[in-house]
Each structure stands twice: as structure tokens, then as C-alpha cells.
């Protein structure tokens, strides 16, 4: 029977151990060279960059949405203003005077007041 050693046990007695010090340590069997390290760092930077870009793009997307809503508000305000003007024109004295109802009205020959 054979086995592969994956971890090492170091006896306390084999070193100058002291209180609160781990008596075992893990040593990975995967060894990374300098190229792998560089690639990993580059990948991490790329991922971070992509995250930043995603966020920035999302913020810009909100800007376009805000701009679209702002345009809508502006357009609706213009429409509201136009309607208010139309309303004011329709209720203007000149319009009322020229209305068919007003033309049918006559001036009273006399006015009397009810006594309180």
C-alpha cells in the first residue's frame, strides 16, 4: 500500500515552538509560477475594470432614461401650458361677450335690491 503525502506534520519538538503557535501548517501542492501570477493579476484587473465599466454604463443608462423622462415632462408641461392658454382664451371676457348666450342677454331696465 502506498500513499501520497499531502501535508506535513512537524513535531513541536522539532522547532522552537511557542504558545499559541499552530503546530501544523498547510502547504498547497499547486505551485504557481510568475507567469501564472501575472495572468491572474491581469485577469483580476480586467474583471475589476469590467465591473467598473458595467456600473458606469448602467449609470449612463440611467442618465438617458432620466433625460427621456425629462423630455416627456417638458413636453407634457408644454401641452399643459397650451391647454391653460386655450382655457384662458375661452373664458376671456371678449370670448364671453361674443358668445351666443351673451348675445341673447339684455340689460335690465331697472335694478332693485332686496332689503335685509
Amino acid at each position: 500500500m502506498s500513499y501520497q503525502q499531502t501535508s506535513y506534520y512537524t513535531s513541536r519538538r522539532r522547532q522552537n515552538w511557542s504558545r499559541n503557535q499552530n503546530t501544523t501548517r498547510f502547504v498547497s501542492s499547486v505551485k504557481l509560477g510568475p507567469v501564472a501570477h501575472t495572468v491572474l493579476v491581469a485577469l483580476m484587473i480586467t474583471v475589476l475594470g469590467l465591473i467598473y465599466l458595467t456600473q458606469a454604463t448602467r449609470a449612463t443608462g440611467y442618465d438617458y432614461e432620466a433625460q427621456r423622462i425629462q423630455s416627456q415632462i417638458s413636453e407634457l408641461n408644454d401641452e399643459k401650458a397650451d391647454l391653460e392658454i386655450e382655457n384662458a382664451r375661452l373664458t376671456a371676457l371678449e370670448t364671453i361677450k361674443d358668445s351666443s348666450v351673451a348675445k341673447e342677454m339684455t340689460t335690465p331696465s331697472s335694478t332693485e335690491f332686496a332689503q335685509p
Binding site: 458606469a56 449609470a59 449612463t60 440611467y62 442618465d63 438617458y64 433625460q67
Partner: peptide, 10 residues
């Protein structure tokens, strides 16, 4: 702003 002069919050 962007090229269309839309203000951006960046």
C-alpha cells in the same frame, strides 16, 4: 455630456 450633448452624471 455625450456626443448628443445629453448630460451624464459621470
Amino acid at each position: 455630456t455625450d456626443v448628443s450633448e445629453v448630460p451624464l452624471t459621470i
